[in-house]
Nucleic acid binder design. Sequence first.
DNA 1: GCGACAG
DNA 2: ATCTTGTCGC
Length: 226
Amino acid sequence: MRPPPFPKPAHPEEALVLQRALAGKVRLVGSLEGVRRIAALDASHKQGRPLVAVALLYDLEKGPLHVATAFLPEEALFPYVPGLLSFREAPAYLEALAALPEAPEALLVDGQGVAHPRGLGIASHLGVHLDLPSVGVAKRLLYGRPEAPLPEEKGAAVRLLAPDGRPLGYVYRSRTGVKPLYVSPGHRVGLEEALRFVRRLPTRFRLPEPLRLAHLEAGRALKALD
DNA sequence: GCGACAG
DNA sequence: ATCTTGTCGC
């Protein structure tokens, strides 16, 4: 796939302006019912080392099909600022996605979708940029609060609400006895549809398999640098 | 002023 | 994101 160029803001203030504009393009409607091939995105990074981004092409019936890796030197990276993560990692993901043998039907991203202070987590940003359906799965909360206590049983989910009460996504227990995940739609998918999709992904441990495999690969690639 | 704060 | 040993539990 040939992604459009991804502009790099000169500073956080500029990123904020861009972010607010792009947030207006997010569309939270659509189902991933018929989707079969997705790309799982995860990154790994160590100070002073290049950022490693992995795009793993995954077929929901066949399993993992291909792994593409991209490296971006520290000097080329936008600084990490909570709420502006996409400006740092998205360029690397776009490069990895471009190296896949075929374009995915949807993206599964390690990070937030619309459960973000300005409604544009990295999953949403990438979805809008590539005009692809996307879902965000984060390991920690950035924005919002659980509507109620999360039950212990595998598969349990409670809504994540914005301060004004608007639903943003879900706190989701992927397995019994593990810490929850934060699932939110990125782009071109509904709130409930995003959760429904994540629930049907094979999940042996805490993370859905596509993301877990991408994470393992990113860790390997980083370690292989030294 | 005091926390909170994806990766 | 990474830095890190032991330890609890299936």
